[in-house]
């Protein structure tokens, strides 16, 4: 275990060189293999294992591919007397039977060992529950020790260095939970609870997405992943468990009143107010999130107002109606109120 940790650290150092390696082997100019949503930019131990598996197989496949192509061209173009040795049953027995059997006999156990080691439940893991809904993510952090439970949406905030177990399911249709930088994906299936285990090793901002086609707005169903230092994470968690702050200025109070009178509370929860609808995302600390609309737009007063007024233009098929009849002033007040919910 220790050895492996050392190895992972070591990998972290040479990582910029290696990161693009997989891509380069395709002999293709790379648009960018590092990124917030890339399997070629691992940020956790399991993702590294998968990355190495990818590299090993890519190198192997490339070599075999070059070899077979060369052999084919040789068979076509070489002078008959020089290629005669190739034109026998022996070629098939060695190339098509013996070689694959030997190679695959090695690859299969390697693949199985990687399979055993990644996505394995760890003791003491942080438990998080995520429910996929058309087209957003309901996220719940259960109570742990003296930390109270709370819900949020469309973002996953995690501490680095601590194993994490995400339990996933779906409320309506099948979705799939995928954070490429942290490892593979796991389907969210109604009636089933699946688990995804990983450990983040690099702090940073990553992006997860729905990988299983789930209907009209499948393309716009993403979420942010924030990997924080453990202390920052604890602070975040304490804040999130708090009820929403009272509006500090009258303008924001007006926003809250409009939020209430507009009936927003029949779908959304803002803890600490009478808004307790369960259909849509929990908005108690919506202002603290990086993005809105399930990973679609940066979160600020302008985008919030635009979102409220034009949901059905921006994300047609989402469950929330457009509130286009609100005046600009009212919209700004509601958006300002929401933005203040840090």
């Amino acid at each position: 275990m220790d050895f492996e940790t050392t190895l992972t650290r070591l990998r972290g150092r040479i990582d910029p060189v290696l990161r693009c390696g997989g891509g380069l082997l395709w002999a293709f100019p790379l648009a960018g293999c590092s990124g917030v949503q890339s399997a070629l930019d691992p940020a956790g131990g399991d993702a590294w294992d998968l990355y190495w598996l990818t590299i090993v197989m890519t190198v192997g496949a490339t070599l075999i591919f070059v070899f077979v192509t060369a052999l084919l061209l040789y068979a076509v173009f070489a002078p008959p007397e020089r290629r005669a040795w190739l034109g026998t049953r022996r070629t098939i027995v060695y190339g098509g039977l013996a070689f694959p059997i030997v190679t695959l006999s090695l690859l299969l156990p390697y693949g199985l060992i990687v399979m055993r080691d990644v996505d394995a439940p760890q003791p003491g893991a942080l438990q998080i529950e995520v429910i996929g809904e058309q087209y957003w993510w309901r996220v719940r952090y259960p109570a742990e020790g003296e930390q109270a439970e709370f819900s949020t949406a469309n973002e996953l905030v995690i501490p680095i260095g601590r194993p994490i177990t995400v339990s996933v399911t779906a409320a309506d249709v099948i979705h799939s939970f995928w954070i490429p930088n942290f490892g593979g994906k796991i389907d969210m299936i109604p009636g089933r609870i699946n688990r995804f285990n990983f450990t983040a090793e690099r702090p940073g901002i990553y992006r997860g997405i729905c990988a299983e086609f789930c209907g009209a707005q499948h393309a716009r169903m993403a979420f942010d992943v924030m990997a924080l230092e453990p202390a920052e994470f604890d602070a975040w968690r304490r804040t999130q468990a708090q009820p929403a702050p009272e509006p500090a200025i009258p303008f924001l109070a007006r926003g809250r009143d409009l939020f209430r009178s507009g009936g927003c509370g029949s779908c959304h929860v803002v803890r600490g107010t009478e808004a307790n609808g369960q259909l849509g995302p929990d908005l108690t600390h919506v202002g603290s999130r990086r993005t809105i609309g399930a990973g679609q737009f940066p979160n600020n007063v302008g985008t919030l107002a635009g979102w409220i007024a034009n949901v059905q233009q921006i994300k047609p098929g989402a469950k929330m109606p457009s509130y286009g009849s609100l005046t600009g002033e009212d919209l700004r007040a509601i958006a300002g109120y929401l933005e203040s919910l840090k």
Binding site: D49, L53, T54, A61, G111, V118, G184, I186
Partner: peptide, 16 residues
């Protein structure tokens, strides 16, 4: 195809 036959790799590649 052999690559995606390895389940762990497929967890990344699947549906992408």
């Amino acid at each position: 195809g052999v690559m995606v036959a390895m389940a762990p790799f497929d967890w990344q590649a699947h549906d992408s």
